[in-house]
Design a protein around this nucleic acid. Structure first.
Lengths: 221, 221
DNA sequence: CCGTTAATGTACGAACCAGTACGTTAGCTA
DNA sequence: TAGCTAACGTACTGGTTCGTACATTAACGG
């Protein structure tokens, strides 16, 4: 999460714009994820940084723009993770499974990001729409999926007409739901979907599901 | 959504507790779904009813309890819908597909409910925890799934070890994500998952996915 | 037809909270 | 080392918003 580290020089200098901005973003991410957009308190964010509320307005302009900046950085992190995706050397089945597992892992490792996405959806994605960085940003994983699907189709392993965006949605659904709805699901069904003991179970369940879908003969009605 | 109808008697009487309560719940559902818990305004809810804010506190006690009451009713609606589930006469494959489709339809028909669930998760399901009606309520659909899975296993159609709660989570994931993340997904990928023209596409995609998972020979790694 | 109570309306207060006016200082540059 | 500006801090305000004190009336039971 690009967390703020102590500066290289022994004793921290008093003034460091980049560092102050990063610290505000760190704290704001947690606060927004904790309480939602309207539940988050600018004063609370300020109090948890080593600077003051004034700086939030100085650097970001306002609560709204701060939230947008938080979103931009969070999406940046997942983009970076997906950039480093290297599965092209695997056979299509193994490659898809690997991709699904990486998505699974990223969702689990970044619950704050999931919450931010939930919050942004409550507000109709208006901050993404207002952001220059985030419009139609897509996802690096999409290109990977496209290539794997193509090669899987060629070799006759996969059913012909599966769309890359749809498959991405399918994989994301499972990973997202498990983290996002952890609390209501747990309260209603008495089962913690993010229980570490069940991690491998759900991880392979996702892979099995996707592979089964891609390799099934689409006959049985 | 148990919407409020005009009373039977020709001219509405001034005082009607049940009706006032129901109207408050209707409006509150929309307002909470629109803006989230903290974003929702009690004054706004009051303004949109034919009564006053005083009544909200009179009947529900406060904003927090009002939200809980809204959740309770929303969950009640889906329970009712699932009660009327009649798929036992179908063969296991058709029965599961039908169940998945009904879940799909209910999610699509009740976006406000989906939003309320998202909001409740942002707040750690604390209202469900505080509610007597909603603790470990489960879901009628679960029993149906259990029975279908058992008969599917017996007849050798389904792979042995699939858990009913897990399957319910799998089906819900897809349905939930499509509605809940409609806005961010649309903004980032330029595809509207709830586009009516794509409805049948995603509906059958869900069914195919679930059936493929249940009927796959769990060998190919 | 009268009393009782559930139901309703009005007006207000107190706390909270996003945002800002104004003042100060660190640190670079010439 | 003087001067300039980016970076920072303090204190406050104006509007908002949940909640309530107090007043009132409808409708039913006896």
């Amino acid at each position: 999460m690009t967390s703020v580290e102590e500066p290289a020089r022994p004793n921290g200098r008093i003034r460091d714009a980049a560092r102050t901005k990063a610290e505000i973003l760190d704290v704001a991410t947690r606060e927004f994820a904790r309480a939602g957009y309207d539940g988050a308190r600018v004063d609370e964010i300020a109090a948890r940084t080593r600077t003051t509320k004034r700086m939030i307005y100085y650097y970001f302009g306002g609560k709204e723009q701060l939230f947008t900046a938080v979103l931009e950085r969070a999406y940046g992190v997942i983009r970076e993770a997906e950039q480093g995706l290297d599965v092209e050397h695997l056979d299509p089945v193994a490659a898809i499974r690997r991709l699904a597992e990486l998505t699974f892992d990223h969702h689990e490792a970044h619950p704050d990001f999931i919450r931010l996405v939930s919050i942004e959806n409550i507000h109709g994605a208006e901050h993404i729409a207002a952001s220059e960085k985030l419009g139609r940003i897509g996802s690096p994983a999409l290109d990977v999926i496209r290539r794997i699907l193509a090669s899987g189709r060629e070799s006759g392993l996969f059913t012909a007409d599966v769309d890359a965006v749809d498959l991405h949605a399918m994989i994301s659904s499972f990973c997202f739901f498990r983290v996002a709805n952890r609390h209501t699901f747990g309260a209603l069904f008495g089962r913690d979907l993010v229980d570490p003991a069940q991690r491998e179970h759900y991880r392979s369940m996702l892979g099995d599901m996707v592979i089964a879908y891609l390799t099934a003969d689409r006959a049985p009605r």
